[in-house]
Simulated assay, not measured.
Amino acid sequence: MTLGVLHHLIEAEEATDVAAMNALLPAIKFNGGGHLNHTIFWTNMAPNAGGDPSGAIADAINEEFGSFQAFKDKFSAASVGVKGSGWGWLGYCPKNNKLAVATCQNQDPLQVTHGMIPLLGLDVWEHAYYLQYKNLRADYVKAFFNVINWSNVNERLETARKSAGH
Results as ranks from 00 to 15, higher is better:
2 T>P: 07
14 E>F: 05
129 Y>D: 02
108 D>A: 08
54 S>A: 08
148 I>V: 10
2 T>F: 02
42 W>K: 09
12 A>R: 07
11 E>S: 14
117 I>V: 12
66 G>S: 14
147 V>C: 08
28 I>H: 03
44 N>D: 10
66 G>F: 11
147 V>K: 12
145 F>Q: 15
78 A>R: 08
67 S>V: 14
141 V>I: 13
34 G>V: 08
147 V>H: 12
57 I>Q: 12
80 V>A: 07
133 Y>C: 03
1 M>C: 10
151 S>H: 05
131 L>R: 03
24 L>H: 11
4 G>V: 07
127 H>D: 11
99 L>S: 05
130 Y>W: 06
100 A>C: 07
91 G>V: 10
164 A>H: 15
74 K>Y: 10
29 K>P: 04
64 E>W: 05
123 D>R: 02
43 T>A: 13
153 V>Y: 04
60 A>K: 12
97 N>S: 10
117 I>E: 13
134 K>Q: 03
100 A>E: 07
29 K>T: 00
55 G>D: 07
59 D>E: 14
162 K>E: 14
40 I>H: 03
156 R>E: 09
97 N>D: 09
148 I>F: 13
94 P>N: 10
160 A>F: 15
10 I>Q: 08
129 Y>M: 06
115 G>D: 11
110 L>M: 14
1 M>E: 03
3 L>A: 00
152 N>S: 05
91 G>I: 08
111 Q>H: 15
116 M>I: 02
74 K>G: 10
13 E>Q: 12
163 S>K: 09
19 A>C: 13
49 A>T: 01
110 L>V: 06
77 A>K: 11
50 G>H: 03
140 Y>F: 01
133 Y>V: 02
21 M>Q: 14
107 Q>N: 13
108 D>W: 03
152 N>Q: 03
121 G>C: 00
33 G>Y: 09
2 T>G: 15
114 H>T: 02
68 F>I: 04
33 G>S: 13
20 A>E: 14
20 A>I: 10
155 E>M: 07
158 E>N: 00
105 Q>W: 03
85 S>V: 00
134 K>C: 03
108 D>N: 15
144 F>A: 13
115 G>C: 06
72 K>A: 09
120 L>T: 01
63 E>G: 13
50 G>L: 03
4 G>C: 07
37 N>A: 01
96 N>V: 04
69 Q>F: 13
